[in-house]
């Protein structure tokens, strides 16, 4: 059993603090009236990054066979792409 599979406590703590910071940032953007396509794009990008941290680091897929990493990251890319297409479709209504 390799002891590095799940990283170090220090790295996990920094990632967790970054995730909380990103959450507070997007929450602050919302409460200060950030709106429009660019604000939504920033929110989606930050949310995507948070998901990537969960997949690659917390789920430890960074150290998994490529196929599993590709399927899981591919799922998230596909979901956000569908959300983006639907959002842009809605703008044209």
């Amino acid at each position: 059993m390799d002891t590095h599979m799940h990283g170090t406590p220090k790295r996990a703590t920094w990632l967790w603090l970054s995730l909380i910071g990103a959450t507070l940032l997007t929450w602050g953007m919302g409460t200060h009236g950030a709106a429009g396509t660019w604000a939504i794009a920033a929110l989606a990008a930050i949310s995507f990054w948070k998901g990537a941290v969960i997949i690659l680091d917390f789920m430890a897929l960074r150290h998994a066979p490529l196929l599993w990493r590709a399927i899981t990251m591919g799922w998230m890319i596909l979901v956000w792409a569908v959300i983006a297409i639907a959002y842009l479709k809605g703008l044209g209504q």
Binding site: H4, M59, A64
Partner: peptide, 12 residues
């Protein structure tokens, strides 16, 4: 003397 990082990819 420390183990080197994950040599073989492994699903957790």
């Amino acid at each position: 003397g420390h183990p080197t990082p994950a040599a073989e990819p492994r699903l957790a």
